[in-house]
Amino acid sequence: MSTPKMNATGEKSPQTRAPLPSQVVKEDEPILVAAAKAGDISAFETLVSRYERKIFRLAQNITQNREDAEDVMQEAFLKAYEHLSGFQGNSRFYTWLVRIAVNQALMKLRKRRPNQVSIDEDVNTGNDLIPREIEDWGPSPEERYKQSELAGILNSTIADLDPPFRIVFQLRDIEELSTEETAEALGLSVPAVKSRLLRARLKLRQKLDRYFRRSENQ
């Protein structure tokens, strides 16, 4: 069993990622959750405001459908409120909320495409993972694009991945769940999460290459 790379605040090591201020877990989260559990509605509303954009993006990336994503977001917050008394605080509230949203999103996805989506089926992670003729991107390739352009590139790039890879990447590298949390949320083994994640990361790297390679931009 591998060890999740989390520091005391639940964030990943900054070596490969530098969280933006909005991504850092705020220290008041347990206080807000305790207040919401005690019936303080405004505390729950603060949690909703804090996470609504992230939960919507998560739902959008999984379902690839705006209307479904909106339903998933609403259902996730309503379910979280309904089951708040059962939240034991063994994980971050946000991680718990993500799991609820993922379940809702997967149900939507399966309903919409019953024969196409199975997150737990064996997938071919292939042996063709070694890319060739790699080019350097330079230190900050994302800065060549405006914020809105970059968002469009990232959205279309992740949308191109097949669901089993897209969802694992979403949970591990965007929502920053640990490998074990991702495996549990998706009902997958840890090795299955790892192999899908590697495939997803390399596929995304390959897809971003056309935007970020130095020779295309000099």
């Binding site: 490969t16 990622r17 530098a18 991504q23 992230k54 390739p141 970059l150 990232l154």
Partner: peptide
């Protein structure tokens, strides 16, 4: 491969919704 894959993760991780 390693550098650009790390960068890929970082760009997605840092993207604001």
């Amino acid at each position: 491969i390693v550098d650009t894959t790390k960068k890929t993760i970082q760009i997605f991780c840092n993207s604001e919704p």
